[in-house]
Design a protein around this nucleic acid. Sequence first.
DNA 1: CACTCATGCGTACGACCGTACACATGATGC
DNA 2: GCATCATGTGTACGGTCGTACGCATGAGTG
Lengths: 189, 189
Amino acid sequence: MCTVVRMSGERRPRRHDPGRRDRLIDAALHVIAERGVAATTHREIARAADVPLGSMTYHFASLDEVLAEAFTRHANAAADIFDERLGAATDRASAVEAVVTLIRDDLIGSPNELVMAVELYVAAARNPALRAVTQAWMQRSRDALQRHFDPTTARELDALIEGLVLHSVLSTDPMTPDQIRHAVERFLR
Amino acid sequence: MCTVVRMSGERRPRRHDPGRRDRLIDAALHVIAERGVAATTHREIARAADVPLGSMTYHFASLDEVLAEAFTRHANAAADIFDERLGAATDRASAVEAVVTLIRDDLIGSPNELVMAVELYVAAARNPALRAVTQAWMQRSRDALQRHFDPTTARELDALIEGLVLHSVLSTDPMTPDQIRHAVERFLR
DNA sequence: CACTCATGCGTACGACCGTACACATGATGC
DNA sequence: GCATCATGTGTACGGTCGTACGCATGAGTG
């Protein structure tokens, strides 16, 4: 009778767990999107990742560090999507098409995208480290647009995209793909 | 010797204080703009209004109620500005001018304006009452624009304005008035 | 002036927070 | 197999929060 009896629900046996830090950052992202930065606590992230509370302070110096890394990861992923969509375009017409698709499928289509962006903006308003993340993200978006449009147009278009997504998601009647296309083409006309 | 001695710093004598509720809402607005919704607590608001903590629970059923009233007040004030600026315009050219002035002076010019908007968007993401406030605000902006532009244009222009303000304020190099004018005129051309 | 009672306030409670740190644990070298 | 020690965890502390509620207070009435 030397087997260890596990009372109350299966103990977690993982001791050495490389990549746990990564999983914690992903868990943090999930919590931010689901519950908001305000509800993103050490305990909540640990629960989401099924990891003991002490593991948080072991892997991160502070909660701010977790937030910064999480937002950085998200911003990079979002910028990658921009690059992909626009990198596939060959001429101006397909670039316009890429922008419409981007807005429809990647920005409005996955509702977390806007939540993450707005959460980041608010957090950045009080936290310089996050402001840098925001600015790097915006720069990458603009750069992607500049592959097909002149700098001034790229900047203005970038702003238009953000405004369209914001108003579409927050509005009671979201914009249809046709309305989005109309707005973009009108601006680039 | 029957005078009351006030030790430790002048007691607040105001007992009957009509309009205190109003002042508390204003104090809440101030705290939100200054420190963010996350730091907006009963105690912080009471301190800002120089009022005892118990006064908060006396005047408001919950902290959410305070936030809702504060954001409602702010949204109305912001929409009033929209109305004013655009109401003064007589023809299309002066309407465009009004939009540019609005963006430059009232939206980018007073930096709290964007902070309040973004704080509201985040709060609204988790709170249906605030979502209604957001939507009413957007509706009033759009209505104001519709006094001079057709509904489709008004909606798209509204989104463009929001995007321009957002990107201008968050960017390291804010847009100049000329750049703003350029973007707006380009869209309305 | 004395009494009454709606109005407004001080204080305390339970919950949750970030963080620190002593200790358990299992991988590693001998 | 055993000693050692880096790695990971359980727990507790000080602080702040929202909210409730018994009591002080002063305006109004006679």
